[in-house]
Amino acid sequence: MPLFPAPSYDSAVVALRAAGCVFAEDEARLILGAARTPDELTAMVARRASGVPLELVVGWAEFRGLRVGVEPGVFVPRRRTEFLVERALARVPAARVVVDLCCGSGAVGAALAAALDGAELHAADIDPAAVRCARRNVAAYDGHVHAGDLFEALPARLRGRIGILAANVPYVPSDEIGLLPAEARDHEPRVALDGGTDGLDVLRRVAAEAPDWLAPGGCLLVETSERQAPAALDTFARSGLTAELAVCDELFAHVVTGVRP
């Protein structure tokens, strides 16, 4: 049941529609459910109408059935990334050690841990805000979150033991950042978006070191674009991984998987 009278809902819908929110009714319901007072409701609607992503307004994002906490300055998990989780579980359904690299909010790691009962979960990010956020989201799974640059952040004891290495690396080419929707361009950290000149700089670094960290039969998974997929596949193969591309047309998701022989 709504916390406030119907006119508050109606006013919120009108304001969100005027701001261009396509799903104004659904968004108004979510905001009403999160607001604790009429004044907070007014402020939250105003933030959303000004272009702040809905997830940052209400403080959470839905990801593979989980409510993942998000906060300003942290990358908001995308529904299309659920496909990466599905591919990981299909490839290594009994993984005992899972790493969520470039973890952001920790959504991928949390989703994997929720599906893999008892798996040892580690996550890492270079951004302190992401590390703080991820620690809250993986706490329920006894997950460990490390601060640092890619593999440098991980405990050395994980080398050669990782069954699933999910690396949702930034892959937007630097000169295309300005073309992103304002919700991403203006409200998400550039370090979580910018993949360098061709968008593959971080992917190359991860692929180069991944074979040393994966267990035999373990897999590295990254999300990429349709345009970048051929180069990503070649990069994985050059690193000694058996590479394949999976595509989900419904989510417009492209996931490259590399398996250590």
Rank of each mutant, 00 (worst) to 15 (best):
123 A>P: 06
132 R>V: 15
98 V>C: 04
4 F>W: 04
218 G>E: 06
147 A>Q: 10
90 A>N: 12
174 S>V: 13
230 P>D: 09
230 P>A: 10
15 A>I: 14
198 D>K: 01
15 A>G: 08
57 V>Y: 03
189 P>W: 03
22 V>P: 06
105 S>Q: 10
227 R>T: 15
83 F>L: 08
140 A>N: 00
112 L>I: 01
81 T>N: 11
185 R>W: 08
204 R>L: 10
26 D>R: 11
82 E>Y: 06
150 L>W: 09
80 R>F: 12
195 G>V: 07
100 D>I: 13
198 D>W: 11
257 T>D: 07
134 A>K: 00
122 H>W: 12
67 R>N: 00
102 C>L: 09
119 A>G: 05
57 V>S: 04
128 P>K: 04
252 F>H: 13
125 D>V: 10
64 R>S: 02
40 E>R: 01
257 T>L: 15
13 V>K: 09
92 V>C: 15
142 D>S: 15
61 A>V: 04
199 G>D: 13
176 E>Q: 15
130 A>N: 07
250 E>Q: 13
164 I>E: 00
13 V>Q: 07
183 E>L: 06
194 D>E: 13
47 R>L: 15
125 D>E: 11
123 A>L: 08
61 A>Q: 10
68 V>P: 01
199 G>H: 10
226 E>L: 12
165 L>D: 01
189 P>D: 10
96 R>T: 14
69 G>R: 09
51 G>N: 01
16 L>E: 04
61 A>Y: 00
80 R>S: 10
230 P>E: 12
250 E>F: 13
73 G>A: 08
101 L>E: 04
251 L>T: 03
155 P>A: 03
26 D>I: 11
196 G>S: 05
199 G>P: 10
255 V>H: 01
1 M>N: 12
161 R>M: 11
145 V>I: 05
204 R>W: 06
104 G>I: 07
17 R>G: 15
178 G>D: 12
196 G>P: 05
21 C>S: 04
121 L>R: 01
157 R>A: 15
131 V>I: 14
175 D>Y: 10
93 P>I: 14
62 E>W: 13
188 E>P: 07
224 T>A: 06
110 A>D: 02
122 H>Y: 11
260 R>M: 06
144 H>A: 14
107 A>R: 03
257 T>S: 15
66 L>H: 01
160 G>A: 14
242 T>V: 13
133 C>Y: 03
130 A>Y: 07
14 V>Q: 14
81 T>E: 12
174 S>P: 12
38 P>I: 14
200 L>E: 11
233 L>G: 11
254 H>T: 08
212 D>V: 02
59 G>V: 02
92 V>Y: 04
224 T>Y: 05
76 V>N: 00
5 P>S: 12
134 A>E: 00
152 E>Q: 11
91 R>C: 14
219 C>V: 14
185 R>E: 04
26 D>K: 09
92 V>P: 02
155 P>T: 03
116 L>C: 08
215 A>L: 08
50 S>P: 00
94 A>W: 14
203 L>K: 00
72 P>N: 05
128 P>W: 03
167 A>T: 00
198 D>M: 09
156 A>T: 02
84 L>K: 02
217 G>Q: 01
225 S>W: 01
107 A>Q: 00
133 C>F: 02
206 V>P: 07
133 C>M: 05
224 T>R: 03
244 E>P: 02
